[in-house]
Design a protein around this nucleic acid. Sequence first.
DNA 1: AAAACGGGGCC
DNA 2: GGCCCAGTTTT
Length: 350
Amino acid sequence: MVFSKRLTLWYLHNKRDLPWRKTHEPYQIWLSEIMLQQTRIEQGLPYYYKFIEAYPSVFDLANAPADEVLKLWQGLGYYSRARNLHETAKYVAFELDGKFPDTYKGLLKLKGVGDYTASAIASICYNEPVAVVDGNVYRVLSRIFGIDTPINSTPGIKEFKALAQELLDKDDPATFNQAIMEFGALHCKPQNPYCETCPFNEKCLALKDQRIKELPIKLKKTKIKKRYFNYLVFDLDNENTILEQRTGKGIWNGLYQFPLIETEKLSAENELVQLDSFKELIQEQKYSLELYNEEPVVHKLSHQHLYTLFWLVNTQGLQERSVSLEEVMNYPVPVLIGNFLNEYLPDDYK
DNA sequence: AAAACGGGGCC
DNA sequence: GGCCCAGTTTT
């Protein structure tokens, strides 16, 4: 039996019932694909429902305020996806009359849409025979065909794309693409795959050579940096505080946070208050300072560990640019800030 | 070609 | 602590 036939047979018996499998509308497929980039389906699913409810069409999304989109995205991570999502929605709605490009090549031009996503949308919505290559596909193919080219090397990317394209069922690319991903997610899992009951266990080279655990091969990743954050939480007791929007190219671009002082190492109070950046924030005001957490909160990102202290600052007068307590929860914030607010604020504000 | 970009789940 | 997840963009 040919590869695609054996694969799709497995798929028809084992596929999950997922909302984006009930439609071929490019808006919904596009939304789901952006959301699921580097994201487990279980994690993305509630966000997909939220977005579809809030924005049933690309026009609804296009007309939404950027901060509102970011707020709905809060907690999902990789926030550039949300910014690109909104920008692309506006482009499709207002420049393309609400119609998504209907080819792989055209889709590839959209912001936030790379090779994988363009292939997924083109195949699922328009039956264009282009193979998807995501983390699942790398794993399935590297194991069955015993390929040890690193999946994140330039030759590897080319090799796996070509192989996937060769195996693709050109008569039903939509089913094939979803089948190979579903097979990787549910059966040929990263850890403890079900080789005993695998439809490919007679031909799988990794199984034959006992290399299941070592495939796929991935080049080393960069090492994690430690950073030390001091958040100044102004006057939360007095019903108003200060939030600032992060700008630039670093983490959490576009999200809001308390005024931040980053230091080279964990700060003591007497060191913190002498910093120019601290004095700048306090201006000439009278203040009292209290450390909220003796032990730093360690917030772990892919490439950074953030050791964070929250300092409660009480001043006399009302702050300039202050945000009321009711408003705080409407701002999109990083999970690090969201966790603090959930712990600190009374339940009425949540 | 390599680094940056989140958060959560699993071993 | 390390790896992975329906990857893309920037450097």
